[in-house]
C-alpha cells in the first residue's frame, strides 16, 4: 500500500472551479443579448453569429494543430466560442460572410494565437477583429439595418444609428437629438446597431448572472458606467442641444456590451480591484472623449483597446493593500 500513496504539497482540495466553467458561464450570460439580436435582426443575426463562432473555433483549432503543432486542442475551453460570439455582437447583421471570416482570422490568428493562445494575448481578440474590420471596411461596418427585418441578410434596408445622430448633434445639427428614439426603446434595444449591443436590458441580465456566479467582480463594469454617466451628464448640463443625455449615452452603441463583456475579459484587464477601477474610469472617460470630440461616432472599442495596452502598467502600480499596511501608516 505504502508505495502507492500520492505525495504532493498542500492544498489537497480544490474549489472545483475551472476555465471551462467560467467560459461557459460567460456564454450563458450572453444568451439574453443573443436572443434579443435574433429578434431584432432575424436571419442576418443568426448567419453572422454562426459564421463568426464557426470561423473562430476553426481557426483556433487549425492554428493549434498545424502551426503551433500542439498535442492538445484548446477549443473545448470555450474561449474561442466567446470570441466568436463577441465578434459577431460587434458586427452589423448585414455584413457579408467573407468579411466575417477575415474578422475571425484576425481576431483568433493575430489577436490571440500569435501571442501563444489563451492567457497570453495583450488585447481582447474580438476587439482586435472588430477594429481591424472597422478600419479596413468602414462602409460595410457602419451601415446598420433597420430592426425587425426578419428574413433579410445583406439586402436589409439600413438607417442611421442613435450614435450617428448624437455625432451629428455634436457637429452642430440642432435637430439631431430630437430624432433619437425614446430612452426606453434604447434601453430595450429597439434601434439599429451592431448585433449584440442594442439591448441594454439583456446585457444587464448577463451582468447580473456573471456577478451572481462570481465570474467577474463589479469593479470594471460599474466604474465604466459611472464614469460615462458623470462625464456625459456634465456635458449634457453644459449644452443639452449638442450633447445627448447621459442615459442616451449609456444605452446606445457598444457601451453596455463593452463595459460588461469586452472590458471585463480576464486576460486583458488588470488583476487588482484598485487597478480595475483605474482601468474602468479611464475607459469610460476615453469613450466619452472619442464619442464627443473624435472622428468616430463610437469610442468604446478604441477606449478598451487603448486601456488593454495600459493593463501591464496598471498591474505594476496598482498593488493590492497588503495585510498589515493599515497599521503601518
Amino acid at each position: 500500500m505504502a508505495n502507492k500513496l500520492i505525495v504532493s504539497l498542500s492544498p489537497h482540495v480544490h474549489s472545483g472551479d475551472s476555465v471551462q466553467k467560467n467560459m461557459y458561464g460567460v456564454l450563458v450570460a450572453l444568451i439574453p443579448a443573443l436572443l434579443v439580436s435574433f429578434y431584432m435582426f432575424g436571419l442576418g443575426a443568426v448567419v453572422v453569429t454562426l459564421t463568426s463562432v464557426a470561423a473562430c473555433v476553426f481557426f483556433e483549432w487549425a492554428i493549434t494543430k498545424f502551426i503551433l503543432k500542439r498535442e492538445r486542442s484548446t477549443i473545448c475551453d470555450g474561449s474561442a466560442i466567446i470570441t466568436g460570439v463577441l465578434l459577431a455582437f460587434n458586427l452589423p447583421s448585414n455584413l457579408p460572410l467573407w468579411i466575417i471570416i477575415i474578422g475571425a482570422l484576425v481576431a483568433i490568428g493575430v489577436g490571440k494565437m500569435t501571442f501563444g493562445g489563451l492567457g497570453c494575448n495583450p488585447f481582447n481578440p474580438a476587439l482586435v477583429g472588430r477594429i481591424f474590420l472597422l478600419i479596413s471596411f468602414p462602409v460595410q461596418m457602419t451601415s446598420w439595418p433597420t430592426v425587425q427585418q426578419w428574413i433579410s441578410y445583406t439586402d436589409a434596408t439600413t438607417e442611421a444609428t442613435p450614435l450617428a445622430l448624437m455625432k451629428m448633434a455634436v457637429k452642430g445639427d440642432v435637430n439631431a437629438l430630437e430624432q433619437l428614439p425614446e430612452t426606453l426603446n434604447l434601453f430595450l434595444g429597439n434601434n439599429p446597431g451592431s448585433l449584440g449591443e442594442v439591448s441594454a436590458l439583456a446585457l444587464l441580465f448577463g451582468l447580473g448572472y456573471m456577478l451572481w456566479k462570481k465570474i467577474i467582480s463589479w469593479h470594471i463594469p460599474v466604474s465604466i458606467l459611472a464614469t460615462v454617466f458623470v462625464c456625459a451628464g456634465l456635458m449634457h448640463l453644459v449644452d443639452p442641444v449638442a450633447y445627448a443625455s447621459p442615459l442616451a449615452h449609456l444605452f446606445t452603441g457598444g457601451l453596455m456590451l463593452g463595459a460588461i463583456f469586452m472590458a471585463t475579459d480576464y486576460v486583458t484587464s488588470p488583476m487588482t480591484h484598485k487597478g480595475m477601477i483605474v482601468y474602468g474610469v479611464a475607459i469610460g472617460f476615453l469613450t466619452i472623449v472619442i464619442r464627443l470630440f473624435g472622428a468616430y461616432p463610437e469610442g468604446m472599442s478604441f477606449a478598451i483597446f487603448i486601456m488593454n495596452a495600459f493593463t501591464p502598467l496598471i498591474n505594476t502600480y496598482c498593488k493590492p493593500k497588503r495585510f498589515g499596511e493599515v497599521v503601518k501608516k
Binding site: 484587464s269 488583476m271 497588503r322 499596511e325
Partner: peptide, 14 residues
Amino acid sequence: IRCAKCVSVCPMGL
C-alpha cells in the same frame, strides 16, 4: 487566464 481570483482570495493581500 489572469482572472485575478487568486489576488482577491489572498488573505495577506499578495
